[in-house]
Design a protein around this nucleic acid. Structure first.
Lengths: 282, 282
DNA sequence: CTGGTTATTCTCGACTTGAGAATTTCTACT
DNA sequence: AGTAGAAATTCTCAAGTCGAGAATAACCAG
């Protein structure tokens, strides 16, 4: 019930239990961010889903990769969402400097088109070997971001193809329970692409249907039928808004110019775009 | 990144920021539970969605209704999920006594068929007037539970029809930001009924298609076409499993006996059962 | 002007849906 | 026993959606 502490607790009512002194064993509250973007693979040139990771500079898990994150600044009355944006900005180096810390997403110019949402909270005792830590995880989507890194100060920060972190392909794995958090974030992202217009958050302000399809293919990790995809996205009311313009040129190797669209007002997709395959999980 | 505290922080790296002393302004961590069940309305006899509320016995918001909840017992190494189950058990009086606190849902016998999932975390500064509180909210579904109340100790606990708490119909509203949490919980519940087999968690071990439909109608708050609903649920693979038995009697005023089913293994519904109406929100 | 490339539109058969209605099986009451 | 009304289950049918596989259209390089 969110009641708190010793004050006004002389009642012998049930609430006495809640005012138990054990409640005051300190618990640290942090935020971790699963930041996703779509970029081209250096080699194949294909578009793939990438996640932002940093390299830990201290024990425990020193040298291990981890999700960016850090303490919620309680003393500064920082909101959870604000903390997530701040950590992301600091870690990516994007607008880490100068930016006022007023309106959440407004702080960092380069992070302006960012979509941010809470993913879940992880607080199992022992997840951090040093003390009890409850971490609120956030999921962030952004259009192709620059080689983040160099967060002004942070240890190496890099966009890593999520495929590389797949348990089995990744020898050491992420620090703490971050592999689990990442997995939850990916599943959430894949699911939200089905019934929300979130995919447009990965694209620029104007994009082609093919680019949008590539977003879906990168996140879902499977090819989609171009024709049917085209028909489908244009039939969902409010999903795409025609700009009446086309790309300046066709493909590098020839080909028709593609029509440009911008995100329409709809937030929910009706009917939804369902993944061809999916597993029986929950 | 879930890193913590002073120890091993003599590095001048970026992490220094994370080790900022301000991080140690205490933050209290609590759990709040949105517990839902379906019961008959005392008057009309119709089935309606109810939420468990308690009456606050202390300031602030003394006398106001609130969601059950309380501190996470850090000193006892209590997991967040455990804390939610414990609070629910204490508040409902169901198995508040004796029960070991081992396996989460196993503690309280009467709560055994309970479905529990994390809803979200609410930590806006000022949501509790006394101190900084970060509350992890949980959503719980259970089949028709007894008139909970009398949690051994708790101030009056009651199942309240959610319609009664609707902003506008409810003069005072819930304490803290609990109205918001409840709203989020309801939306989540309504959404999950669409694409998961969660509805069966509101029904007994064996139920009829009509009872299942009543669950959907109570949660969604709108009538469904009986015939189409029947066809639909039976066509989703793994949703319902035939028991080859029927109810002992038809309806009180006559009528055919209904076939009994139990929940099948499926957790996700394919294809989904979509709400007839829905708003454009996210 | 030509061949290869990319975008967009069509076709068609298999399903799925919503509405409305028919059937089947019961209970209560003459 | 026989009948009316109730509740569960099954059907019908037209409209909409989907996946596969083309067919068209518009472009680029040479």
């Amino acid at each position: 019930m969110t009641t708190v502490g010793p004050p006004d607790s002389e009642s012998e009512s049930a609430w006495l239990a809640a005012y138990d002194p054990t409640a005051f064993t300190p618990i640290a509250v942090t935020v971790d961010v699963v930041a996703l973007t779509i970029r081209r693979l250096p080699d194949s040139g294909a578009k793939a889903l990438h996640v932002l990771t940093i390299r830990r500079g201290a024990m425990p898990y020193e040298g291990r990769r981890a999700l960016p994150g850090g303490f919620v600044r309680a003393a500064e009355n920082e909101d959870l969402d604000q903390a997530a944006v701040r950590e992301l900005a600091e870690e990516t180096g994007l607008a880490a400097h100068g930016g006022g810390e007023s309106g959440a997403l407004a702080a960092a110019p380069l992070l302006s088109r960012l979509h941010l949402e809470q993913l879940g909270t992880y607080g199992t005792p022992g997840r951090d070997p040093r003390m009890r830590v409850v971490s609120v995880a956030y999921l962030a989507f952004a259009p192709d971001l620059p080689e983040a890194t160099a967060g002004g100060d942070a240890a190496a920060a890099h966009w890593v193809p999520v495929a590389e972190l797949d348990p089995g392909r990744d020898p050491e794995g992420l620090a703490f329970d971050h592999a689990r958090i990442l997995a939850d974030g990916l599943e959430r992202a894949r699911a939200k692409l089905e019934y929300t217009s979130l995919a447009t958050a990965f694209a620029g302000p104007e994009f082609t249907v093919t680019e949008l399809r590539e977003v879906y293919e990168a996140v879902w990790g499977e090819p989609l039928h171009a024709g049917n995809f085209h028909r489908k996205v244009l039939s969902v009311p409010g999903f795409l808004e025609d700009t009446d313009t086309t790309t300046a040129r066709g493909g590098a190797r020839g080909g028709r110019r593609a029509r440009l669209y911008r995100a329409g007002g709809a937030r929910l997709l009706h009917p939804a775009l369902l993944r061809p395959s999916r597993e029986e999980t929950l």
